[in-house]
């Protein structure tokens, strides 16, 4: 459990990061290190160069702009979790972060690093997919481009970030007034990775009926799945527990047995509606609070 040899760089500008990444094929970005360092120690990855982005200026911003909350590449999970602005703007992200690891890990781990790592059991990719998050990706000589969450997540542990690419940040749409959100997961023990997790968010219109429902589930297969049938079933009706439960029964999606093998495909299939229902229920429980 000692890493193989690698060169370590700690640039202070995005341009230098991109230069370092471009100059050595296979170079890896180091953010919070909570996933990368164990991989290095177990020699599951052996990059020739590790580019530490923690001293890069401007990547640690958490701010609202043009109706979106922008989370820079070095913003810690703990920072977002503790941020009242984030709680107001993207309550689903905060609800999910409360389930990510424990405080020691969250105080180093970043939101962006978590998404780039793309563990198929991680909570945050489900949030990104549910909310149509947008990633800002920079590559030397190619400028900056935006990648939508729907295109971002590849097979497990893979993303659409090109080689030598740096994700400088991710943005989420700011929730409209009256939006409620909930995250529910089943894990083998407290604070462990999810066997399966559901992210749910919706808003009530003036008739107290559901609009803009968003539901996604993590842990089933390579990437988080939107539960479009559930979303559709919720629309236009009051979110009674019966309505939530009935809608949850429409949750389906391909379960890939060998992905997230902490539990069998059969188990995940069986509890899928339960997780969706409970995520919705957690969201509904916040209705009074936000009204």
């Amino acid at each position: 459990m000692r890493p193989a040899n690698f060169d370590y760089r700690r640039p202070t500008t995005v341009a230098d990061v991109l230069g370092d990444l471009a100059s050595t094929p296979g170079a890896r970005v180091l953010a919070g290190g909570q996933s990368l360092v164990p991989l290095l120690n177990m020699r599951l990855v052996q990059p020739p160069v590790v580019v530490d982005i923690n001293r890069v200026e401007g990547l640690d911003e958490l701010r609202e702009r043009d109706g979106r909350l922008h989370v820079g590449a070095t913003v810690r999970q703990a920072t977002v979790l503790a941020s009242e602005r984030a709680q107001r703007a993207v309550p689903l992200l905060v609800a999910a972060l409360a389930k990510v690891a424990h405080p020691q890990v969250r105080s180093r781990g970043t939101v962006v690093g978590n998404l780039c790592h793309h563990d198929p059991a991680s909570e945050l990719p489900a949030v990104a997919v549910a909310l149509d998050a947008e990633f800002t990706v920079a590559v030397q000589g190619e400028g900056i481009r935006l990648i939508a969450a729907a295109e971002f997540f590849g097979e497990q542990f893979r993303t659409a970030v090109p080689p030598a690419g740096l994700v400088t940040g991710v943005s989420f749409p700011v929730a409209a007034l009256g939006t409620v959100a909930g995250f529910h997961e089943i894990s083998r023990k407290a604070k462990d990775f999810a066997l399966i997790g559901g992210a749910a968010q919706f808003r009530l219109d003036t008739h107290a009926e559901v609009v803009d429902a968003r539901v996604a589930v993590t842990g089933l297969g390579h990437r988080p799945l939107r539960m479009t049938a559930v979303e559709a079933a919720l629309l236009g009706a009051p979110p009674t527990d019966d309505a939530l439960r009935t809608a949850s029964r429409l949750a389906t999606g391909e379960v890939v047995a060998e992905v997230n093998a902490r539990s069998s495909a059969g188990y995940r299939r069986r509890v899928l509606p339960v997780v969706v229902h409970r995520a919705l229920r957690a969201a509904a429980a916040r209705i009074e609070v936000s009204a």
Binding site: P38, M42, H102, R188, K189, A190, K191, D192, F193
Partner: peptide
């Protein structure tokens, strides 16, 4: 082979 796959109880459990 590691404590991610081998689950130990923690205070929360």
């Amino acid at each position: 082979l590691n404590l991610q796959d081998y689950l130990m109880p923690t205070a929360g459990d």
